[in-house]
Design a binder for these strands. Sequence first.
DNA 1: TAGGGCCTGGACAACGTTGTCAACGCAGGG
DNA 2: CCCTGCGTTGACAACGTTGTCCAGGCCCTA
Lengths: 342, 342
Amino acid sequence: MAETTRRPAHRYGNRPTMKDVAARAGVGLKTVSRVVNGEAGVTPDTERRVQEAIEALGFRRNDSARVLRKGRTASVGLVLEDLADPFYGPLSRAVEEVARAHGALLINGSSAEDPDREQELALALCARRVDGLIVIPAGTDHRYLEPEMRAGIATVFVDRPAGRIDADVVLSDSFGGARAGVAHLIAHGHRRIGFIGDQPRIHTAVERLRGYRAAMEDAELAVDDAWVSLGSTEPQRVREAMAAMLSGPDPVTAVFAGNNRVTVTAVRELAGRERPVAFVGFDDIELADLLGITVIAQDAAALGRTAAERLFRRLDGLDDAPARTVLGTALIPRGSGEIPPA
Amino acid sequence: MAETTRRPAHRYGNRPTMKDVAARAGVGLKTVSRVVNGEAGVTPDTERRVQEAIEALGFRRNDSARVLRKGRTASVGLVLEDLADPFYGPLSRAVEEVARAHGALLINGSSAEDPDREQELALALCARRVDGLIVIPAGTDHRYLEPEMRAGIATVFVDRPAGRIDADVVLSDSFGGARAGVAHLIAHGHRRIGFIGDQPRIHTAVERLRGYRAAMEDAELAVDDAWVSLGSTEPQRVREAMAAMLSGPDPVTAVFAGNNRVTVTAVRELAGRERPVAFVGFDDIELADLLGITVIAQDAAALGRTAAERLFRRLDGLDDAPARTVLGTALIPRGSGEIPPA
DNA sequence: TAGGGCCTGGACAACGTTGTCAACGCAGGG
DNA sequence: CCCTGCGTTGACAACGTTGTCCAGGCCCTA
């Protein structure tokens, strides 16, 4: 009677290992490893026997063990803000494609715009020993990543710069885009223009506001504090901000929205008004063409792709000084931004 | 002079291990493990010394080794079709939230609607020994997952059923939704209704077409083959299909779109027409409210959440027979579906 | 004061894989 | 015929962690 070797309870289900395959094929453990990894130096006949055993047992290599041994996980981590945001879907997908081209898997997590959660996630990924990390910062202090980066985890920041550390960054030209958008409104005759943006903690929000101010200044237009509103992108908040700047004795005649979520709410809000208000939004959104919404488009996929390519170049040994890459934006006139002041 | 121990080249960067921490703190290896894992049975004083050493060395536990030892990876895999599709973003996010609540990370990959790539991805995730797998099928034969499932990798299929194996599935009611949508058009007087759907390989496409036919039959309306078009969701293809069914001696007076991408193209196409054509689309899309598009809405987040919850119940030991869960859809009238026949 | 139990800490093996190295068999040449 | 060299194969250690088990010290009680 065959002796039943007792397996530890924690064994993965009851998966065969290379040892089991080796036993069945009547070869050594290392030979199985060679076959599995397609290494040279195995007789066709031996290889066939091993393959049969693999097939028969349903063996699949345990990558955890492989990773432990080799020191590379062939995976990269992506910490973003919210995967459900249509801006980040294409970005994430682009990163995934680049990773795939390099044979790596993508682990991603959402920070929900919470700095603590960002840190928790990023460090969890480091504990997994991802080879590299792409981070869309929620927080403003990333010194917690310094030991990890020193220890060899390549890190690239996207969409917003890293805080208080020196690292690769890939950004859209928020300042320039906003400036161009607001200048466009000014060119169409507007003098009183509102700005609704994201929370001031967020770099892009600040940059876009800066672009707005620059455009106004370029045209020698004064900015009334009542026209500017930074804060959460909650519809409720945005509606209130709009209501405020569109009422009163001297309402704005045009509105510039600081990101896609603000745009969605703003467009809904403006649709209900009788007096037309000109509008330009940062970020293109689906069907904006049909609605005739003028936007400053940024290329989310290009951001992701560029960041991922930089990351893999680092993993391939590139050892430059950290660089800041800025991608351009495009003004797409579709009607809403070309409405003259009432 | 201190002897420099030579480290293997493959060591993660040059990360300290528990052994290093133990040496520095002057305690045993296992004691460090206890502290790191918050296990009981360590004197406050010892714990402090260990914590200091961890801090000083910048130690972070190597989860690869942990995983190898424990047999659980605390990660789940999600194979979807395209993360850049706005339908899958929220779904993925919902899965992530559930995973997070269970302390697990999410690895996801896009199949790009390619069965081979789906398989490649799913098996790569199995090799990583994810604890569980959520799959949005691209292919129609999932027997390749049988050994994995037997070996203990819990698997749940979402959005589309598994092919040729028995497994948990979470679906939207494609048949019922399409039937209701088409019945809605019929109720508004339409007799000639077109259907444009996804490729017939895809289960939801077939189900929705079935719903369309059922509604027509319910109303005792014959269906002309020229009104029905299944195929890729490429804008070009959709445009041609629409042009075909909207021309000729007996054009359709209403169109039902089988998914969100078809809807986007169809809406663009219809917007350019002078004679109004009634329209209902499967899947809600952003700003559809402003465009007045009547849709059959399904809840992507609920799909993801339900599937993930089922998965984790399995991981917690649930051992039922595989179940099929069907989530309802909602008809949202917004105007385009209530246009009478021309 | 002796004995027993509890608490803390450490030695050791094991998880499944890969790198290193040496052994073996066989063919060809001196 | 023996030696050399090459190509194939396997034994063994190591990767960094956790589970098991035991030793030693302490306190409490009889």
